[in-house]
Design a protein around this nucleic acid. Structure first.
Length: 552
RNA sequence: GGCCUGUUGGUGAAGUGGCUUAACACACUGCCCUCUCAAGGCAGCAUUCACGGAUUCGAAUUCCGUACAGGCUACCA
């Protein structure tokens, strides 16, 4: 076909497209940037619930754009209607907001390079396809599924590369008349790339994260426009990221093998090349098989974004975890710069993991605990209340009714240089501080106690008489010691160990009795602080409760 | 089958030819502190970097081969 015929063909195929490519080139002018500004994008498909890996990828887009004072935009990649899920787009935007990953522009956020939804860009794609047809880089292909399957079988048998290329691309050189005839027969067709590549040649591609990679040149006539005239991922990527002026394509590493195709598309379309950064997948060691595999929403609860909200994992803590897996040196930096923010750290692509990154629940847990340990009682209270309002309404009511006391409990040992680390998520607060709220404590009814002792309530009632809450921790403990000694207990565990036969027990045993009666468990934060907040009356109530439930 | 990529301890990993008797963190174990727990302090935790070979005075670091793992090989993204 000569140029004249190709022009005719293009008009025949896309009579609806009147604009020239230059129309869009002018409509979406280059962004005004300096050379450091990174334009990144997150391009989710609305096909279901959001995976942690998606969140991670969006998180990376955000940090690199923010730290370079560039832009991070959101583009909905919904070219496949078959896989679309109802409410899928709202789900994505909701999850991003919920996790505080906020794009600068894009779907729902506005911007000059829209529409930011691929299903609304059909004309744009067709305009560029028309250009490719005219220039001889694309052609209609009328092969049926069956024909393609047959070729595939043959290629599998011959153990050669699978696909439509070389002599398998039978419609590559159809004449205009042949095409016209098929068209008049209403035969279905797709538009394929007429690949100019030569697979015997090697190309070298530099990925920001993976470094140098060598590939054979791309020579497959990949589908660019599907039967329904919508673009495939590859074509949409080339057009959109060019027109939206993305500078860095940050995406999952399942795309690296498409790199030769993408590079070729940019060449054929005459687009300026951009940078790619392929991030390693989130993996986990399968407990059953012992092999490493990708995090799976079906098998691993923490693979789904939802999980973090439902469990009550603080978003900031999750961000901290994502940052530690994004850049391997972040963790150490943060350890030495505890007062700084994530955005103060300089993320670099070459500090990003190349192979798979194993999801480490224990580490996330530790980060969460540290997060909570650094928040004061009021902050923990407010955040927990917010969580409970969404996921545990009954508890939210209890929290509101016990606000001042609850904050006091949450503040225990907070002013020390070594704050406690016993909470890892909002849902832990209810469990850990059940003794703070009478209704909850009564309902719990000493079920958290795991020993088999029955404590001497008469002794503790006796103790209550001498209990003075208006003193320092030290003075209080001296009182307990004296009380222990006058009742035949040793004043310290050391004394007891020396002559165990001489005593009924030691101060620790007295404290244990008080602790269990008052908190329902053998382990708790500072006992005196708890007693002080509770006050004598409630302590008395608890002794009675203990008698009623455990003794009788 | 073809094409890519990866493989350092229980985990995340540092490491880019001698400064590594392999950093740091998490986890785990022991001890100390101590009214319990948490926190904290101290100590322990890979004689070795998947395996085999090559280059080199010298390799976790370079090269080749093998094994294993992951990805792609769709008119899905």
């Amino acid at each position: 076909m000569n140029k004249e015929e190709r022009l005719q063909l293009a008009d025949l195929l896309f009579p609806n497209i009147k604009n020239d490519v230059s129309y869009y080139e002018n409509l979406y002018p280059k962004r005004e940037l300096n050379k450091d500004n990174m334009i990144t994008r997150y391009g989710p498909s609305p096909t279901g619930s959001v995976h942690l890996g998606n969140l991670f990828s969006a998180f990376c887009d955000m940090i690199y754009a923010n730290q370079s004072k560039g832009k991070f935009f959101l583009r909905i990649e919904d070219t496949d209607q078959k896989r679309a899920v109802e409410g899928g787009i709202e789900n994505i935007t909701g999850v991003l907001k919920g996790f505080n990953i906020i794009p600068d522009e894009g779907y729902d956020y506005g911007g000059d390079y829209g529409p930011y939804q691929q299903s609304k860009r059909t004309e744009i794609y067709q305009t560029y396809i028309k250009k490719l047809i005219i220039e001889g880089y694309a052609y209609p292909c009328f092969m049926t599924e069956k024909e393609i399957a047959t070729i595939r079988e043959e290629q599998e048998l011959l153990k050669i590369k699978i696909g439509i290329y070389g002599h398998y691309a039978v419609d590559r050189d159809l004449s205009l008349d042949e095409i016209k005839e098929k068209l008049s027969n209403n035969e279905d067709y797709v538009i394929r790339l007429k690949s100019p590549g030569d697979a015997s040649k090697q190309i070298e591609i530099i990925d920001c994260i993976k470094g140098k990679m060598k590939f054979p040149e791309h020579d497959v006539d990949t589908v660019l426009l599907k039967k329904d005239k919508t673009p495939t991922y590859h074509f949409a990527h080339a057009i959109d990221d060019h027109l939206m002026h993305t500078t860095h394509v940050i995406r999952g590493d399942e795309w690296v093998s498409s790199l030769p195709l993408h590079i070729q598309l940019f060449e054929v379309l005459g687009f300026e090349k951009l940078n790619y950064a392929h991030i390693a997948p989130l993996t986990i060691k399968d407990k059953e098989t012992g092999t490493i595999r990708k995090l799976s929403k079906r098998k691993d609860p923490w693979a789904g974004a939802k999980y973090y909200k439902e469990e009550g994992i603080p978003i900031e803590a999750l961000h901290l975890y994502l940052a530690t897996i994004a850049n391997t040196n972040f963790e150490e930096w943060y350890l030495n710069n505890q007062d700084k923010k994530i955005s103060d750290f300089e993320f670099k692509f070459d500090k990003q993991a190349i192979g798979g990154t194993s999801f480490d629940e224990a580490k996330l847990n530790n980060i969460c605990k540290t997060y909570f340990s650094r928040k004061n009682g009021e902050e923990v209270y407010n955040e927990t209340l917010e969580y409970a309002n969404s996921f545990d309404k009954d508890y939210a009511i209890l929290l509101e009714n016990n606000k001042s006391n609850m904050i006091k409990f949450l503040n225990i040992e907070k002013d020390s240089a070594r704050p406690r680390k016993d909470i890892a998520k909002y849902s832990d607060v209810k469990e850990e501080f059940s003794y703070a709220i009478d209704e909850l404590f009564e309902k719990e009814a000493y079920s958290k106690y795991d020993g088999d002792k029955k404590y001497d309530t008469a002794l503790i009632e006796e103790y209550l008489k001498i209990l003075n809450l208006d003193c320092t921790n030290e003075e209080w403990f001296n009182d307990v010691k004296n009380f222990a000694i006058t009742n035949g207990y040793a004043g310290s565990p050391k004394d007891y160990k020396k002559e165990p036969d001489k005593y009924k027990g030691h101060v620790g045993d007295i404290c244990e009795a008080i602790r269990v009666i008052v908190t329902g468990r053998t382990k708790s934060p500072d006992l005196f602080s708890i007693l002080k907040i509770l006050g004598k009356e409630r302590i008395k109530d608890r002794i009675n409760l203990y008698k009623k439930i455990v003794i009788s």
